[in-house]
């Protein structure tokens, strides 16, 4: 079963995915293209996190996307 969770800031798709020997919860961001598959222990560990944890995750609001900053003149 695929779930969509959305507010005015973004939307994610959540679904249970089967592995050969088990299962994980997949979270997919259609806007940014990132995808993660979390196992029960990882999910459980989320339950005792505070908002601060997620605020830290959001220090890069559009994902890691670390770019090596090079000037245009470098490329010429």
């Amino acid at each position: 079963m695929k779930l969509e969770v959305a507010n005015e800031f973004t939307v994610v798709h959540v679904q249970k995915v089967k592995t050969r020997n088990g299962e994980r919860l997949e979270i997919y961001s259609p806007r940014l293209g990132y995808r993660i598959q979390l196992d029960p222990l990882e999910l459980e560990s989320l339950t005792w996190q505070t908002t601060e944890t997620f605020s830290r995750f959001l220090e890069t609001p559009f994902g890691p996307g670390a770019v090596e900053a090079r000037s245009l003149s470098d490329l010429l």
């Binding site: 800031f9 908002t51 997620f54 959001l58 220090e59 609001p61």
Partner: peptide, 21 residues
């Protein structure tokens, strides 16, 4: 929302108003 992400440049605030990203 737990956080707000401004649609112009993406400054992101926790719902208590703190700028986090």
């Amino acid at each position: 929302a737990s956080h707000f992400r401004c649609p112009y440049h993406g400054w992101t605030y926790r719902n208590d108003g703190t700028l986090v990203g």
